[in-house]
């Protein structure tokens, strides 16, 4: 099943189970969503529950919050995280704070879906990753789907959570094929050990999970060691337990993210590891991240600005050799 089909199925099933689930956003209705995630839903549920909105992100989320207060379970789609900047006031100042400000009388069962990351030549204004902003806001839940299985389960559960969820997708993953285990009772807050290993823990999320996995194959052959790969899945809250279990075993951690290095989400993970697992470490934590530049349009420069499987491989190998692996 494709990643976008898994998301579509999650929304479809949620809408079937619960009449209060509605979706809204730019082109989600008649057009089927700019990445075809809501394809077929307009025909099935009609314009009352699948709502095409004007190009006005602040109002999309603002309206969704209103729906949520009034008892609906809205799923808002923002075309890309880059445009979500226009909706920040509603997300940060309203959605995340209503439960707290109302003394628990109001719940905001809202899901805001948005794809981000570096796609192919969309240039600086359409290639950002803003998980670091959302993951720093108390009152929000942030999920990051790296594969169809998590996309299906986590989105469906997000819709039925009573707090606002920022559901992050990646533009290059929509056509990713993967198996979905419909019988699984997946905990969306738990990080997943994608691959077990003994010597290095590689922590990643979204598309970099796939790239890290490719790199690990070469690293293991080259260094004759085994690597453990963790997909964070939930960025807020962060599942430190899974990270700790792994680092206690391997004693070494690498964080791979696509976002710019300065202030990127990896900085938070790195800080938590140093705070909580300092005496377990046998090597400095390695951070592999994007360069501190606006993402270039030129394809070669674009690739030069973000981690790729080859770069991840080379960086981990040289770091491992420096640090006694």
């Amino acid at each position: 099943m494709l990643y976008r089909e898994a998301l579509n199925k999650a929304i479809d099933e949620a809408m079937e189970i619960d009449k209060s689930v509605v979706i809204l956003g730019e082109d989600v209705g008649r057009y089927g969503g700019s990445y075809r995630v809501s394809e077929g839903l307009f025909a099935k549920y009609g314009k009352e529950r699948v709502i095409d909105t004007p190009i006005a992100e602040l109002s999309i989320v603002g309206n969704a919050i209103g729906m949520a207060i009034a008892g609906l379970r809205p799923v808002a789609e923002i075309m890309t995280v880059n445009f979500s900047l226009l909706a920040l006031d509603q997300i940060i100042n309203h959605a995340s704070k209503f439960r707290y400000m109302s003394g628990g009388k109001l719940a905001i069962p809202l899901t805001v879906r948005m794809p981000g990351g570096v796609s192919r030549q969309l240039a600086a204004q359409h290639s950002e990753s803003y998980e670091t902003i959302y993951a720093s806001i108390p009152g929000l839940i942030v999920f990051a789907a790296s594969n169809p299985n998590y996309a299906y389960h986590a989105l469906k559960k997000a819709i039925f959570l009573n707090d606002p969820v920022i559901f992050l997708e990646h533009e290059l993953l929509y056509n990713e094929e993967g198996e979905v285990d419909f019988n699984e009772d997946l905990d969306p807050f738990k990080a997943k050990v994608v691959k077990e290993g003994e010597d290095i823990t590689v922590i990643s999320y979204l598309k970099m999970v796939k790239d890290s996995l490719k790199a690990i194959e070469k690293i293991e052959k080259s260094l004759n060691i085994t690597c453990e790969l963790i997909d964070l899945n939930s960025l807020r809250p962060l599942d430190m337990q899974t990270i700790a279990n792994s680092i206690k075993k391997t004693k070494r951690a690498v964080i791979v993210e696509e976002d710019h290095k300065s202030g990127g989400y990896g900085a938070e993970v790195c800080a938590r590891i140093c705070e909580e697992l300092f005496y377990e470490l046998d090597a400095p934590v390695l951070r592999i991240a994007g360069e501190d530049v606006p993402i270039p349009y030129n394809r070669k420069l674009e690739l030069a600005s973000i981690p790729t499987p080859d770069k991840i491989t080379a960086k981990i190998i040289s770091w491992a050799k420096e640090n006694g692996v």
Partner: peptide, 17 residues
């Protein structure tokens, strides 16, 4: 920017422990 020279640490935290 000049690169920050790496401090030659005596041992890793795990080694010290």
């Amino acid at each position: 920017k000049p690169k920050i020279a790496k401090t030659k640490a005596a041992a890793s935290p795990a080694a010290k422990k």
